[in-house]
Design a protein around this nucleic acid. Structure first.
Lengths: 157, 157
DNA sequence: TAGACGTAGA
DNA sequence: TCTACGTCTA
């Protein structure tokens, strides 16, 4: 029923409904929701343009979810996670893809949470549009990217 | 058919034959062959003694397989893999467990290899006894542990 | 809480 | 070749 790591596509994945839940990142790959085994930002080359296709917000990074329909997503890189040897984030890889997607294409959002026993749950939260992005100083004093994403279609299902 | 991460046991796993092949480390865990998702040395506490139960030799570390029935297994730690900030290996964790297993208990050996396309294959190579161990200087100038393991029952199946 | 012979994609 | 909001065990 699942294609092995199908080609990257933009927008909704046929057969996947908003609210669908998963337990492992590898499931997201198999279904085609998110094409990175660990990376938070998935992207691909579409006619010469590198665009973001999906993001996973599962905690760990700061300033993630605000309300039900808006998400402030933190860029990747700069050792934000392990906090060792912090660096300014660069406009490359996923960050560049998200920038290219500003006001351009829908991005799938997967939200994740961790249970008390350490297990995790991911759920598909629908399509968002990257409204804008900016840089700011993170808690470690280094520059991080922030991407404001708004749910497409207003207040969710 | 598979018990979720059953209790650690020493020796053969019922239902698993020498030569059985697998593709993912997580399979080894589910079947009970090897209880470490990434670690090369699995071990457990048996009546107060910490003993090794299985090792995975999949390349990456130096000096692994010699012949069909003898294996010189390199200890873990000391950043032998990433080669950054090399350290002397310590007699702890898996290394300590293998030491405790010298001339004592059978250890399951899984050998792994990497294909041209980057995919990996693991196969169960049967039970070995840790004959002896020693320290030597590795290529990075730091001390590493070596464990000589001999197939139990002589020339394999 | 930290360590580990992972894994997939760019 | 390298990165990455992983994942499991001790």
């Amino acid at each position: 029923i699942f294609a092995k790591s199908g080609k990257q596509i933009i927008g909704a994945i046929p057969g996947v409904e908003v609210g669908d839940k998963f337990h492992y990142r590898v499931e997201l790959i198999l279904i085609g929701l998110h094409h990175q085994i660990q990376g938070g930002i998935a992207y691909g080359n579409f006619g010469g343009k590198v665009l973001a296709t999906s993001v996973v917000a599962s905690g760990g990074y700061a300033d993630d979810l605000h309300n039900k329909d808006t998400l402030i997503y933190t860029g990747q890189g700069g050792n934000v996670m392990n906090r060792k040897d912090p660096q300014d984030q660069k406009l490359e890889r996923g960050n560049l893809a998200l920038k290219n997607s500003v006001q351009t294409n829908p991005v799938r959002v997967i939200r994740g949470s961790e249970s008390l026993d350490g297990s995790r749950t991911y759920f598909y939260d629908g399509l968002y549009l990257v409204e804008k992005y900016w840089q700011e100083r993170g808690p470690l004093g280094k520059l991080v990217f922030k991407f404001q994403m708004n749910r497409i279609g207003g207040s969710g299902n």
